[in-house]
Design a protein around this nucleic acid. Structure first.
Lengths: 143, 143
DNA sequence: TGGCAATGGTTGACACACTCAACTAGTCGT
DNA sequence: ACGACTAGTTGAGTGTGTCAACCATTGCCA
């Protein structure tokens, strides 16, 4: 619709806006997956962010999601109501609640991560050499 | 936090998850820009999506934003209240309202696009050759 | 030891974003 | 001219997200 989304002035700018298009295509898939698992998109992201192998405090999740503590309270309430996550008391500090992904939560999360990790078709269609080139450049960029 | 965000099994998967990191870094900047212009993030995206040179109907914007018509009603209300956008009657169909970006709207939008187009530092730091390589691969991917 | 600032988390109030269903006004085919 | 359809608005309802106020707990330090 607006032309300048694809009218950059350097190679890097053009690359950046092309990546933007890839992410746009991503959105519908996330919505589909979320509703498929009965989760809202933020809940989905929260569950995806959590690590089944290593409980984190609420505040840790809030930091990872870059949002307020009080926000994750509600998010975790929702996940806990579905038995995907549990609040467990921390040993050395009775104020903090560690978020533990339940067995069911881990199963849901695994399927979810799998679906979300699927490549956009445009990337999947690249030649193996191009895929490696892409990875190598991005590795150099992100160290 | 969760390890599998960076544990892909092919070059393309790794590239895709690295791109994801770039977009994560993008979020705070968008929030900053939005509040700087007194816009909510959805309003910002809406204004950025509109083309000052070519009015579109509400439904066109809704389609571009992949959301309901009734949603853009509210979004446009907000932009119109700040004099950034106007609803104008279409000539040949009195049902449709064309969205016209005002002069002020175009000015705000221009600054906004400029700020949003700034490259993530990781990309800007790439060598010119890498930047071109990145663009070329993405061009091949996205046609 | 006792007091006090600081911290983790929850709650409540509020502003929006967003969807859906119902509605109005206008268009178009037959 | 009637009925099916479309563009947009309205209203209800759900959920996200922030902020301020509030406990319970911790840890410093006098």
């Amino acid at each position: 619709m607006a032309a300048d989304a694809v009218a950059p002035d350097t190679a890097a700018h053009e690359a950046w806006s092309l990546m933007g298009r890839l992410f746009m295509d991503m959105r519908p898939r996330m919505l589909r997956v979320a509703s498929e698992f009965g989760l809202s998109p933020p809940q989905l992201i929260a569950l995806k962010t959590l690590d089944p192998a290593e409980p984190v405090p609420m505040s840790g999740l809030a930091q990872a999601l870059q949002c307020d503590n009080s926000n994750v309270t509600g998010l975790v309430d929702g996940l806990a109501a579905q038995g995907l996550v549990e609040r467990r008391e921390a040993e050395h500090d009775r104020r903090v609640r560690m978020l533990v992904v339940t067995e069911r939560g881990a199963a849901v999360r695994a399927r979810l991560v799998e679906v979300m990790a699927q490549l956009p078709s445009e990337l999947a269609a690249l030649s193996a050499a191009d895929q490696r080139a892409l990875r190598d450049v991005l590795r150099r960029a992100l160290g």
